[in-house]
């Protein structure tokens, strides 16, 4: 391809992502150093490029670390971050525990059945996230279907309180993100050569030993990819804690939403977002590294 065409192919998506993905982060970062104000937009200083260098320098002096100080002073924020990471971590582990056997079972299914099973995993992913979370409200409510079923079975006398607790949040995250975990796991397991297991057994391993010593280590790239795909977005999750969680459910996505929409405190919301991004930088870079390595291996 000609040099000009090559340049064009790269530049168009590149510029788009720069303007609509990267630059916004810097704006968030900058506003996180601003002060809240009762104006539109509700923060100062507002940089105007017409003011010249002197004006900009003057305004730059008005930038402040107050918002970050505020985040450390009110324990709400620290607890939100810790609780988000914890909830995301536990949910990722649960998703792995449910997803692994499912992916393993799919990978061992007959060759003709596999495409159908993959399709069945992907299908919920295509249907609305919001709808799938909403579906659980009807199940988990005090007078919901789960309590009805358990009462009818005689397992419980009084209805359980599941909705508006962290348990409901775990269920919601595991449910919504299960396909993200299963697909990379399945991809890793499906590629695996069954004769490796047979060789291990031939050399004296039991089936279980063969699984732990051969299958599991070889599926680790899938485990890592799946876990990242669940953990990273789960940390910043908003819809699930908002709809299924209760007042004691602290998640940073929800805190940010409240700061922004209810308190209209844009600078603090920006500071919250900046710190969240900082927390997620390591896993995101890890994930991105793995993705690009995989896509280059595929060549």
């Amino acid at each position: 391809m000609g040099a000009a065409r090559k340049w064009l192919v790269i530049a168009v998506p590149y510029l788009w992502l720069l303007v609509f993905f990267l630059v916004p982060f810097f704006i968030v970062f900058k506003i996180s150093f601003s002060t809240t104000a009762l104006s539109i937009p509700p923060y100062t200083p507002v940089f105007e490029f017409t003011e010249g260098v002197a004006g900009l320098v003057d305004k730059a002096r008005q930038l402040t670390l107050d918002n970050y100080l505020w985040l450390t002073q009110d324990p709400l924020y620290l607890r939100s971050y810790l609780s988000s990471v914890w909830i995301a971590f536990v949910s990722t582990l649960l998703t792995l525990l449910i997803g692994y056997p499912l992916a393993y079972g799919m990978a061992r299914a007959s060759r003709s059945l596999r495409p159908l099973l993959v399709m069945l995993v992907i299908l919920p992913f295509w249907t609305s996230f919001l709808i799938r979370v909403y579906a659980w409200i009807g199940i988990l409510r005090r007078e919901g279907l789960l309590n009805q079923l358990l009462t009818w079975l005689g397992v419980i006398d009084a209805p359980l309180t599941i909705i508006n607790t962290n348990t409901a949040v775990y269920i919601g995250i595991v449910y919504s993100y299960l396909p993200f975990m299963v697909l990379p796991l399945y991809a890793a397991l499906e590629r695996m050569d069954e004769s490796l297991i047979e060789a291990a057994q031939d050399l004296g391993c039991t089936r279980l030993q063969a699984f732990w010593k051969i299958t599991f280590p070889l599926s680790l790239p899938g485990v890592v990819a799946g876990s990242m795909l669940v953990f990273i977005p789960a940390v910043g999750e908003f819809v699930i804690p908002d709809l299924l969680g209760g007042s004691e459910t602290l998640m940073i996505g929800k805190t940010l939403w409240v700061e922004f929409f209810s308190n209209r405190d844009w600078p603090v919301a920006s500071a919250v977002a900046s710190i969240l991004l900082l927390i997620l930088v390591v896993p995101i870079v890890l994930f991105q590294h793995q993705q690009s390595r995989q896509s280059e291996d595929g060549r």
Binding site: F21, F25, I27, L229, P233, W266, S270, L280
Partner: peptide, 21 residues
Amino acid sequence: GMVFAPLVMPEVITGLSLLLL
């Protein structure tokens, strides 16, 4: 990085940053 990051970026961050832009 810019192509892969949005796949996992929490929506609240993407949303907030775009709005501020």
